[in-house]
Design a binder for these strands. Structure first.
Lengths: 140, 140
DNA sequence: GTTCTTGCAAAATATTTGCAAGACG
DNA sequence: CGTCTTGCAAATATTTTGCAAGAAC
């Protein structure tokens, strides 16, 4: 995605496209997996972690990223895939490997819906599996 | 559950029934919802948080408690309900209220199974909804 | 007496905020 | 100017470990 399209996309989501935001967005695009704030900090050494934090916070509030708790100590972020503002739409299942501590997107496995009891208003969903990824399962 | 039965149960799970462990177990039994370490620390003021932490760690390793990440900053613990050692068995869906920051067990909603891609070995599952609980939804 | 358990203190890790300087318009 | 954004530093929150004293057997 070139910068012009990226900027338009951010504006479309209600976010002013500053240079930091573009950098963080690109870092997320390049990441093969959901990444932590510390991961982004490493790949973008010029940015302060507080700045990255605020970009991610803003992205999360504007449905540009999903936030995942995978059981590692740190939150993981990934780009939303759908263009919809309804974050429930493009949810897929995630898998956290307890050995290599990486989180995998099972892109082809969408979160099966459930019957939410009356009264609860759902804003987002997380379906997280934990165990061993294929690589680590082979090594045990 | 009286102490004798509780002690037998702990032994059955491979855990020596010390007084701290019994206290923590009872605190978990009395909790209406999954609780954090800090919650337990409050209800058991005589115990140190490191001691509680180690009890919970031990319980988790022996499938006596589930550990939940609900998106609050802190981990939540709840007793496993089944007698099985397979923690996948008694999994139900949880709901985290972003307003009152409590986690609810949707006991009647079990986690729908998915087709795990080949190679992944699943050891546990978390299905977490987030949004507003009935109480908080009414207040907004 | 050897091993397991506990409590205190403190380390380690992550997240989040205060604030002043800078960019933007 | 006035507002939004950024970077540095530091506060907060939570989890986790080191270690010596104590309990259990």
């Amino acid at each position: 995605m070139d910068n012009t399209r990226l900027e338009r996309m951010l504006i479309n989501k209600g976010v002013k496209p500053t240079s930091n935001r573009i950098l963080v967005y690109k870092a997320l695009m390049n990441a093969p997996r959901p990444v932590s704030l510390a991961d982004i900090e490493c790949s973008l050494e010029s940015l302060d972690k507080a700045s990255i934090f605020r970009v991610l916070e803003l992205f999360a509030a504007n449905d540009i990223v999903h936030v995942l708790e995978d059981g590692s100590r740190s939150l993981k972020y990934e780009l939303c895939h759908s263009d919809s503002h309804h974050t429930v739409d493009d949810r897929h299942v995630h898998f956290y490997c307890e050995r290599c501590m990486q989180t995998f997107c099972l892109e082809d496995v969408s979160v099966p819906p459930i019957d939410t009891p009356a009264g609860f208003i759902t804003r987002s969903v997380n379906y997280m599996l934990k165990g061993l990824c294929p690589d680590c399962a082979g090594k045990e």
